[in-house]
Nucleic acid binder design. Structure first.
Lengths: 213, 213
DNA sequence: TGTACATCAGTGAACGCGCGTTCACTGATGTAC
DNA sequence: TGTACATCAGTGAACGCGCGTTCACTGATGTAC
């Protein structure tokens, strides 16, 4: 019955082995549980099971830990967006809608990353890695919008960059107001439903969906 | 040449006279200048020119000051929305679009209030006054959406509450991403332009604007 | 395979600071008579 | 109009706390020979 772990709890070796990532994971958890400012160096260290001084072997400052968390978030986010877009298959329209869903899915599945990226007041341009990862995510949506807009008969087509900004704004707004944020403020519709119908109506406005149904 | 103020600076009387509002104003300024967490009781007191203990004659806690700032913001916001809506005149469509603009205009003209309301992590339901003021603002948009949707031929009309949630989300997203936030992350289009075109395309999708132009 | 040593990744204690809040106080004001 | 007194809105000093960060240190690891 007795497991070793009961008496000899998995007492970490002097060298942690993977402290850097453990600290990032702790940061993500804290930020998710207690909001963008609930994260402190001391608590992250404690969560990772090391002394308060240990984090400084891997990060220069509090901001740098948050930055690393955000960076990892943008990498995941960009990957998700690319996967969802799937090179425009099966159709530009379906691929475009998939990227919208990916935005929402990311915010729901990786709330800690999402907070670090969008709610912690961190500058996307704090370092070039971060800026690059953010751009990569954005450019997927941009590409999707370009492909989509190219199907619109000329004369009444808006610039693709504008379309992608619209969709980014709607997605972000839906996430902030109806997915994150407290239940009290939410909509009677689910975030998924709102985003899907919202994008649907918008695409109809572009003439890309039947005016019917 | 000499003004009294140089030697006898406007040395406040022992009783401030309007300290409560002065503290709220200080809070708004701090929050605007240094972000939602840049605000501290000590600095607000200093800005208002009183000791650090003085604020506690008017507010029970830090949270209560922020709450008052947010409350005043929601009152202004609701007033602006109502003014913009103008009882649906001159037309439901124009009135509806005006409320969208009002959202953006509010965020730009009252950034401190906006931050206290939407970015400080404060619960709308922290007290009933706040909840009521927030509801009042929301209900203007809701009414506008209702009026609008009633013009859509039945069969293909979405619920008005959904339409108002869509517009709220798009407005909020545009503000967060392209009006607030650092210049580096912004769009090449102005927030006004994005919101106007975005709502325009959306309304066309509802069949409320000519598919042309 | 064994040893010496440089390097690395931790520790534990301490720092200075600014925060939110409390306390006993005091000066100013308003009011009853 | 003058006085006594209750009430109000400030003060100044102090509190305990947790924070980010630094420091001299030490145990573990990897490597050259």
């Amino acid at each position: 019955m007795h497991r070793r772990s009961e008496h000899m709890k998995p007492k970490r070796k002097y060298h942690h082995g993977n402290l850097k990532q453990a600290l990032v994971d702790a940061t993500l958890k804290l930020v998710e549980d207690k909001g963008p400012n609930g994260f402190t160096m001391a608590e992250a260290a404690k969560l990772a099971g090391v002394s308060t001084a240990a984090p400084y072997r891997h990060f220069r400052s509090r901001e740098e830990i948050l930055g690393e968390a955000a960076l990892q978030g943008f990498e995941i986010f960009a990957d998700l967006m690319e996967f969802a877009y799937n090179d425009g298959k099966p159709s530009p329209l379906a691929a475009f809608e998939a990227t919208g869903h990916a935005y929402l899915a990311f915010a729901q599945k990786y709330p800690g990353h999402y907070i670090a990226m969008f709610e912690s007041g961190l500058s996307f341009n704090m370092n070039s890695e971060l800026a690059h990862a953010a751009l990569r995510a954005k450019s997927v949506l941009h590409r999707a919008a370009e492909e989509l807009v190219s199907r619109i008969p000329p004369g009444k087509k808006p610039p693709s960059s504008m379309v992608s900004d619209h969709i980014w704004a709607m997605s972000h707004g839906v996430v902030e107001l109806y997915s994150r944020g407290e239940p009290g403020n939410r909509s009677i519709y689910s975030a998924e439903n709102l985003l899907e119908t919202g994008i649907g109506i918008y695409l109809r406005g572009l003439g890309l969906l039947e005016p019917d149904k």
